[in-house]
Design a protein around this nucleic acid. Structure first.
Length: 833
DNA sequence: AGATTTTGCCCC
DNA sequence: GTTCGGG
DNA sequence: CCCGAACGGGCAAAATCT
């Protein structure tokens, strides 16, 4: 029987249940959109309390077998992962991993041995846990464990098993901590990552390079490791460069092709459990302790290691399998995905499992990402391109540095305009690098990386940055970035900020673009913001409304949320790239080539003045008009060109909540926390916050928070709050059934000041429940930690009433009067520079 | 069929 | 999206 | 300044569960 937190909420829940919708607001407020009809019936909370306590589930294995048995599917026969054999009877990918001798391996083991990791000897009969505990040298620290024990009977069931695990948990933690230092020491070891010319690249070559990268924080060093690998690939197996590159940046294809793995944390843990024969609960708790599922996978293997070595993984095989996994869909797709993952996992050696899992997670976490890869790629090409200007071994150090710099510049610029390795790599291997831009040009129909902006802390910062330059201010609309492409043949595409193809979401836009162009306009790429629009009130609606738009195969007649496009830049027009032109000119061309259509297409409102008072009032106007703030951009000259993907300081964003003293600052109580992962392993990575309802005398959850902390603050919070952990939520905590439950609960002992951009009606949090919406609470958009408020007691935290007031104030602004025609046309103020 | 859970180089 | 921190 | 890695709320889709 569990009652814990729900006792008191229970009564209030019942009172919430009078059905029907409330007063229909005439204003297009958010709530009027969100409280559409019935609200899902209230929580079924009590029953699913500690349900994660159930015992191991052996079903998974059965699942797989079932799938295999069914085996239907047009796809190939399913891959059954049985630990004992790995006949490669199946799968087209297999032929790629052909005839690889298992030559090396030895040097790697040195690293392993020096590790405290208990690489379990092939102990066939022992259970893994037993193996481990024998190897462990960590002393038992019996303290602190007990504190948590005095829970109660409800949790009793799984207790024994838990205790058995305690020891191992600690040890894993130690392993996680020491790993980095071990790697650091071992960076001197030259990994024997060579292979025979023309053969498939061994996956181990990649993983060993990853290990080296993980062992340092120096970016130049990481780059050097990658250069070495790329160089080797170009020399030995140039055909494999593309796939290798994709594995390095963790992609399956160009962004705009949209192939996705469809693997999440849960599925991945199942896969690890399945392929190692360990229980989900153990995987979960190991993950909590080490903060690294990859490490869990690596350490979980061993025990059931097969007697004979599996065939070595190759880069093409891994890549191909990942693509296969991504393409699986439909019924029982998850079991099939797990089977494919397991197939890879059992063939992993050494650290391969760790990186494989991290690839599947989508985070390599080794300080290596796209920009570094581009640098390394460019440098490797310089080093191997012997006949070319920059190549050759005779260059002096200085000359080579210069060649590197130039090459990196070229490759990055080209990639930003044509973010497609499928096209760039072949060109890079074929032509001199200085000619790359001639072979890889910006192409309408292929999205380019959008230019981004820096946050600004104060208005004066603008003046500082742009001291002697002309600049212009534009409204920052609260919608979705939309890069609209149109080709001469009329083909139209809409891309998101991250180059996802959004055409299926905006059929209305696709259909109407043609009506927005001037007669001479044939082809173009526009940079715009798509914003939810109320046609009757002629005003902008909140982002949360826009986000309710369907995403796929939207039919025009089904569209409920209308959209207005606010164009602010033109990157390509009538066959000509405008990227090099200054903004002043691009804007001119934009305005000449398009015509506004009320409620459908408008130019972003702008104002050109460098007088701070003017900017301040323009900012106010923008906020009143339901916008987020301002974009401030250099206007003239070299500095005003369009620099794809660079968070250049030539674009700044100013939002009210950046400005100190403005914006919604709340004082909230910390009531729970989540264990940190990755570099936050060992401390809490995020916290659950609550406001205080003075009438009901309860703490109502309002949001999680995980940013704004220095590393020192994280440690401080951990040390302090650890002392206030309680076994279960207090009865005066109202947390709702839909939000994730924290790993630990705290007594209400500390108040934090928190900043947010907005307040939203929440499906998960309970703050001010009943005030705005009958059943839903309020949460915060973009919450971040500011400081501890030691001067406030928990009961003095921001009250539910205040939260509701905050919400109403902001809603009032947006739906109240006076914001008609926000986006309007043109230059409203004629300031002289 | 409807509710629930998981996922997203999601959008912000 | 915001923020922090190493280079 | 650049780059990567922690972390936020909330939506529709897809898959699975009941």
């Amino acid at each position: 029987m569990s009652s814990s937190k729900n006792a008191s909420p229970a009564k209030k829940q019942t009172t919430l249940n009078f059905g029907g919708s409330s007063t229909a607001p005439e204003q297009p407020t958010l709530s009027s959109f969100l409280s559409g009809g019935k609200d899902q019936k209230k929580d079924k909370k009590g029953d699913k309390e500690n349900d994660q306590m159930e015992v191991d589930k052996p079903e998974l294995k059965e699942d797989l077998e079932t799938v295999a048995a069914e085996d239907k599917k047009r796809k190939r026969p399913n891959i059954i992962v049985d630990s004992s054999d790995d006949d490669e009877t199946d799968d087209e990918a297999e032929d790629l991993s052909h005839n690889m001798e298992h030559s090396k391996i030895s040097s790697q083991t040195i690293v392993e041995k020096s590790t405290p990791t208990p690489t379990p000897a092939p102990a066939k009969k022992l259970k893994r846990e037993e193996v481990k505990s024998e190897d462990v040298e960590v002393k038992d620290e019996p303290h602190n464990i007990a504190s948590e024990e005095d829970e109660d009977e409800e949790i009793q069931q799984a207790k024994e098993e838990e205790e058995a695990d305690e020891r191992q948990k600690k040890e894993d933690k130690a392993v996680a901590k020491k790993l980095a230092s071990v790697f650091t020491k071992s960076t001197k070891l030259e990994p024997e990552t060579s292979w025979k010319k023309g053969e498939a690249i061994p996956y181990s070559a990649l993983c060993k390079t990853f290990e080296l990268c993980e062992g340092t924080t120096k970016r130049t060093e990481i780059t050097t490791y990658m250069v070495k690998l790329f160089k080797q690939v170009i020399e030995l197996t140039p055909d494999g460069l593309l796939e290798l590159l994709y594995l390095c940046i963790n992609k399956l294809c160009p962004d705009y092709e949209g192939l996705e793995l469809g693997i999440g944390e849960t599925l991945l843990m199942k896969a690890v459990a399945n392929s190692t024969g360990r229980s989900m609960d153990k995987i979960k708790s190991d993950y909590r302790d080490t903060g690294d599922l990859g490490l869990v996978a690596k350490n979980s293997r061993g025990a059931q290691r097969t007697l004979f070595a599996a065939k070595k993984l190759t880069v093409p095989f891994v890549f191909k399998t990942l693509r296969t996994i991504a393409k699986i869909s439909g019924q029982s797709s998850q079991a099939q995905k797990i089977a494919n993952i397991s197939k890879l996992l059992v063939a992993c050696q050494d650290s391969e499992a760790k990186y494989l899992i991290r690839q599947l997670e989508g985070k390599l976490r080794i300080g290596l990402a796209e920009q570094t890869i581009l640098s390394a790629l460019a440098q490797a090409v310089v080093l191997t391109n012997k006949g070319m200007h920059y190549g050759g071994s005779k260059l002096s150090e200085a000359q080579r540095e210069q060649a590197f710099t130039k090459a990196v510049e070229i490759v990055k610029a080209v990639y930003n305009q044509l973010p497609c390795y499928d096209m760039i790599i072949p060109a890079l291997l074929k032509y001199p690098i200085e000619d790359l831009a001639d072979h890889c040009k910006m192409t309408p129909g292929i999205p380019l990386k959008p230019m981004l902006a820096h946050p600004t802390k104060a208005l004066t910062e603008i003046l500082d940055r742009f001291e002697n330059r002309r600049f212009t201010c534009e409204f920052k609309y609260d919608g979705e970035r939309a890069q609209i492409h149109r080709l001469e043949d009329g083909k139209t595409t809409v891309y998101s900020r991250n180059s996802e193809n959004m055409s299926g979401r905006y059929p209305d836009v696709m259909e109407k673009v043609a009506q927005w162009v001037a007669p001479e306009t044939t082809s173009f790429i526009l940079d715009c913001e798509a914003v939810a629009w109320d046609r009757e009130k002629k005003c902008i609606l909140p982002f949360q409304v826009l986000s309710t738009r369907k995403r796929k195969d939207v039919k025009e007649e089904d569209i409920k949320v209308q959209v207005c496009i606010f164009a602010f830049d033109c990157l390509f027009l009538n066959g000509e790239s405008l990227l090099q032109k200054p903004l002043s000119e691009r804007r001119e061309k934009l305005r000449a080539a398009f015509v506004e259509t009320e409620g459908q297409f408008a130019f972003a409102r702008h104002m050109d003045s460098n007088v701070i008072d003017d900017i301040q009032s323009f900012l106010d106007t923008s906020i009143q008009g339901n916008c987020e703030g301002l974009m401030v951009k250099t206007f003239d000259g070299e500095e005003a060109s369009y620099e794809p993907s660079r968070r250049s300081r030539n674009w700044l964003k100013v939002k009210k909540d950046y400005l100190t003293g403005i914006g919604d600052s709340l004082d909230l109580v910390v009531i729970g926390a989540f264990h940190g992962r990755g570099k936050r392993t060992g401390v809490y990575g995020a916290f659950l916050l609550a406001c205080y309802d003075q009438d009901k005398q309860e703490f109502q959850s309002i949001c999680k928070i995980g940013t704004g902390f220095s590393e020192e603050a994280l440690q401080t919070h951990h040390d302090f709050l650890q002392e206030h952990v309680i076994g279960r939520p207090r009865r005066d905590y109202l947390v709702g059934p839909n939000a994730e439950k924290p790993d630990v609960w705290f007594s209400p002992v500390q108040v934090w000041e928190v900043l947010a951009a907005d307040l939203s009606i929440s499906p998960a949090y309970m703050a001010a429940v009943g005030e705005i919406d009958k059943a839903k609470g309020i949460s915060l958009r973009f919450p971040r930690f500011i400081r501890i408020r030691d001067d406030k007691k928990p009961e003095e935290a921001t009250s539910s009433e205040q939260v509701a007031d905050f919400y109403r104030r902001q809603s009032g602004n947006t739906s109240g009067g006076g914001l008609e025609q926000v986006g309007g046309t043109g230059v409203d103020d004629d300031f002289e520079y």
